[in-house]
Design a protein around this nucleic acid. Structure first.
Length: 768
DNA sequence: TATTTTGGTCTTTTT
DNA sequence: GACCAAAATA
């Protein structure tokens, strides 16, 4: 095995690798001609336009393995970039399966993880000291808010998170504060956004921290300032692979372009139809411009879809054809499912969000009874808030599920507090961490004390922790506060010493115990307190896998792995459409296809570009399905505490008729138009209305029956309201009935406005 | 100072 | 209905 092509050398000193005379490796078998071309066209720039389900990941990993196997480069001379940790992990695993442990030497990871890897080596060049913290969104907003208050900018009028969004956007475009074009500075924050940006960057350096955008921005600055360093990387990376290229933003693009300049062996895989991150600064333009930026680029199109039935593909293709700006690409069914036509996409209307959840889960259950596994099903929603109704229903029906996204373990308050303790121990300059925990648990060090510390820190140009030390020798604080602060500082110092000798998990356990933080939650009688204690214990055990606190901190900052309910068993998946990209399921439920919800209101305000992105999102949703897709829309829906009635999504109509099946059932469409009118509007718009017997009547009866049953349970046999009755509702208060439909009432409430309410939920005003 | 109460805003989508 | 910030209260 001395001729092992993967033999490692520590130094990147290399002579051109010998061409491998060996037989073609086994994993090349089974690739179709386009895929094979994408794998073996190793030299020069290559753009792979890869539609949904065309084997993109397989091509990427095989290409990587091929390059290494052919001896074209050694593992650490290959850079493979993904967007999500999940994609990186998957690629790492599949690569490992093909070529073994040597795959670990490849520079493979998300843009941010790789940026961090580079930044860590040269951080002093941008003013950061080793061990710098990486801030999350919450920390970012906190810093900015502080700066805005200092500059006397009204944080009510210009919410920090909006200002932050502007700054973020500039960062995505690769602009440092001095590079932001003047005309880009809007009037947000009294036109001081740019000043704030500069102050923000300065502040981050002071507290030895950076944010996500900086992971790339700083590296770009280093490349610019130190051409030698850039050259080193340029020489090193003989091959570069980029996943989800359509989602790159400008700074990522610049980073790639700089790195690829020398060898020009850059392979980007992407699908313009799946570009759904423009709000995060992604530029579809990057993919459209590829040939221009890399002259002589080869282009390979992957259009054979191995995932879905022709019906699903027909629906998805028909939908996406409504977008004007596309590179143009048509998916053909080619997999095992290509020969069966497949079931049409089911379109189903319901009364409201609750009925929607009920219908979806009933359908899932009946599929399950036919032998389908829950793990082959997914509910994909447009926005996070939609998950609530489904979660409630999942819990009441006892259906096992896992939720991706949603509340993340590491974003919970108690976890962030605990982490702040660790951060302060390993990073004494971390004022954010200091501020977070100074009075947690209560130490009698509130705003007043903190104010003193801030003054001292600013006056002497030192961190809050050091300012605290200096203040101890003065009488700026009242004796009680001073003693309390002394204890705190001494504790911190003691724990910081322990850090060098103790295992991380043990250290955290000690800190949580001795600080009284854990005791604080144990004593708390709030219903969620026991859960928090549990979470903290979980965090302690999570730390057992680490030998170094710093490493752990970086891991959670970047990976932020979601805790999916540790159910190994069969469970249905619930997540947003964005989170679903790259996944596939036999059966996919797509709820909430109503105007204003999907397409989202903000997108509708944002012009055609935004609308097209919504359509791509719909396309992504449909193409997740291997066999069946179920689209639902609700007659009305509660958004914030407000009832909304929206017509069904235009995207439903854009799906070609031959690939969809609208089953017509629909509760009532309430709204300003009133019941009867919208009712007729709806049946009038019923395509192919010869089929009044399609079970609609029957199902309508069922729906009514189930509702009656609910009413009966809450409020025995009471209906008989008429238009004009004064009523009282537990939540909405007093109002007048404006329409009646069986046991459903439309009521105009004095305060809450017009709502649709079941009769069982209201009482006559005079009976209250 | 700490705790409770109220009132106002909010929700796209994520590394 | 949830979360945060300011106001009211102990």
């Amino acid at each position: 095995m001395s001729n092992d092509p993967f033999e490692l050398y520590d130094e990147p000193e290399f002579e051109p690798a010998p061409a491998a005379p060996s037989a073609p490796p086994p994993w090349l078998n089974g690739l179709n001609p386009e895929q094979a071309a994408a794998v073996t066209t190793t030299e020069g720039p290559l753009l792979v336009l890869s539609g949904a389900g065309t084997g993109k990941t397989r091509v990427l990993t095989t290409r990587l393995a091929y390059i290494l196997h052919q001896g074209l480069a050694r593992p650490w001379e290959v850079l493979a970039v993904t967007f999500t940790n999940r994609a990186a992990k998957e690629m790492r695993e599949r690569l490992g399966a093909m070529i073994g442990p040597v795959s670990e030497q490849v520079w493979l990871g998300t843009f941010h993880a790789l940026g961090l890897k580079m930044l860590r080596r040269h951080c002093d060049l941008v003013g950061l000291r080793s061990g710098f913290s990486i801030l999350d969104t919450d920390d970012q907003n906190r810093v900015l808010k502080g700066l805005m208050e200092l500059a006397h900018i009204d944080t009510k009028k210009s919410p920090p998170n909006l200002v932050m969004a502007v700054i973020q956007k500039w960062k995505d475009r690769g602009w440092t504060p001095d590079a932001v074009p003047p005309h880009e500075v809007g009037d947000i924050a009294d036109g001081k956004a740019l000043v704030l940006y500069a102050a923000y960057q300065k502040r981050l350096i002071e507290v030895n921290a950076c944010d996500f955008g900086d992971l790339l921005l700083h590296v770009l600055a280093i490349f610019q300032a130190e051409p030698g360093i850039l050259e080193e990387y340029q020489r090193r990376f003989r091959y570069i692979l980029v996943d989800e290229y359509q989602d790159t933003n400008v700074s990522q693009y610049l980073w790639l372009r700089l790195l690829a300049r020398q060898h020009r062996n850059i392979c980007c895989v992407g699908d313009d139809d799946q570009s759904i991150y423009s709000w995060r600064g992604a530029e579809v333009g990057n993919i459209l411009r590829f040939e221009h930026d890399f002259p002589g680029a080869n282009i390979v199109r992957l259009e054979r879809n191995y995932r879905s039935t022709p019906a699903i593909l027909g629906a998805a293709s028909g939908l996406i054809r409504h977008n004007a700006t596309r590179l143009g690409k048509d998916l053909r069914a080619a997999g095992a499912l290509a020969d069966e036509a497949g079931d049409k996409v089911t379109i189903h209307g319901v009364w409201d969000g609750e009925a929607e959840a009920r219908w979806v889960l009933d359908t899932a259950e009946s599929l399950q009874r036919k032998g389908e596994r829950l793990s082959n099903m997914a509910i994909l929603v447009r926005a996070g808030f939609q998950t609530r109704e489904f979660e409630e229903r999942l819990i009441t029906t006892g259906t096992p599920y896992r939720m991706i996204g949603g509340l993340r373990f590491y974003e919970r308050a108690e976890i962030r507090d605990a982490i702040a303790y660790l951060r302060l121990l390993s990073q004494p300059d971390d004022d954010l961490a200091f501020e977070r925990i100074i009075n947690l648990p209560k130490r009698g060090l509130g705003d007043a004390s903190l104010q003193v510390l801030h003054l001292a820190s600013r006056a002497q140009g030192m961190s809050l922790l050091n300012a605290a030390r200096s203040v101890l020798d003065t009488d700026e604080l009242k004796p009680r506060a001073r003693n309390s602060l002394r204890t705190f500082v001494e504790d911190i110092d003691r724990w910081a010493t322990l850090r060098t000798t103790m295992a991380p998990s043990e250290l955290l356990a000690t800190v949580l115990d001795e600080s009284g933080y854990l005791a604080m939650w144990k004593a708390d009688k709030a219903p969620e307190a026991p859960g928090r204690v549990e979470n903290l214990q979980e965090l302690v055990s999570a730390l057992e896998d680490y030998t170094d606190v710093q490493e752990f901190l970086e891991h959670i900052a970047l990976v932020m792995e979601n805790e999916s309910r540790a159910g190994v068993e069969d469970a249905i998946t619930l997540m947003t459409l964005h989170a679903a990209k790259g996944l596939e399921f036999d059966h996919v439920f797509l709820p909430g296809w109503e105007e204003q919800v999907f397409p989202h209101r903000r997108a509708l305000e944002g012009g055609t570009g935004a609308l097209e992105e919504e359509r791509r999102l719909a396309y992504v949703g449909l193409t997740r399905a291997r066999r069946r897709a179920f689209i639902t829309y609700a007659g009305s829906r509660r958004v914030f505490n407000q009832w909304q009635s929206n017509p069904k999504s235009r995207f439903v109509d854009e799906i070609p008729a031959e690939f969809k099946e609208e089953d017509g059932e629909m509760g009532l469409t309430a709204g300003s138009r009133g019941f009867s009118e919208s009712y007729s509007t709806w049946s009038g718009g019923w395509a192919g209305s010869g089929a009044k017997d399609t079970g609609w009547e029957r199902r309508k009866q069922q729906e009514k029956a189930s509702m009656n049953w609910q009413v009966a349970k809450r409020e025995p046999s009471k209906s008989g309201f008429v238009t004009g009755d004064r009523v009282f509702h537990q939540k909405f208060g007093y109002g007048a009935v404006t329409a009646v439909e069986a046991d459903k009432l439309q009521i105009t409430f004095d305060k809450a406005g017009q709502k649709k309410v079941m009769a069982g939920f209201v009482k006559r005003a005079d009976e209250v």
